[in-house]
Amino acid sequence: MKHTLVALVEDKPGVLTRMASLFRRRGFNIESIAVGHSELPNLSRMTIVVNGTASILEQVRKQLGKVVNVVKVADVTDDNITVRELALIKVKATSSTRSEIIEIADIFRANIVDVASDSLTIEITGDEDKVDSLLNLLRSFGVKEVARTGCIAMLRGSTSQLPVEQKPSKTRKERYNLL
């Protein structure tokens, strides 16, 4: 089963290597990994999608938690979360197919970001399923190139994910329950 882990990590050289090395050593496959600055200075937020059973994921989460540069890590798979991914898709387009492709992109609320004489580049944002669906529809026209960012995730509602200063009792309780 696919799990979404969110980690808050220090911006230190080698953090990504440390985490990636851990996945490799324990034999987990990373589906996607996305890193970028967070709202806090010197901290990045990382969203990792991994495949594995619950017990294996629990072990991964604990091992990640042991990495000194990892400030917090949580498995948010079962939480109420917003998950988004951005993809750029370059698809073959002729004068006869161009309007059909644009129509499909409109239905998905995707943007045309580049037009050439024989191709269109479409930008789409959404969860993985939405990106996959669009991609499947476009395949018949001939997809020339795809670039995907991997998923990023955030809790819905006003609670922020993994605040550093205050430790909410929920997380602590969760930790013991998960053990």
Partner: peptide, 17 residues
């Protein structure tokens, strides 16, 4: 003291970190 050791190799009924 290491939470990652608990439940790693055997099932545990009462974990205490």
């Amino acid at each position: 003291i290491d939470p990652a050791e608990i439940g790693k190799n055997v099932r545990v009924d009462v974990p205490i970190v």
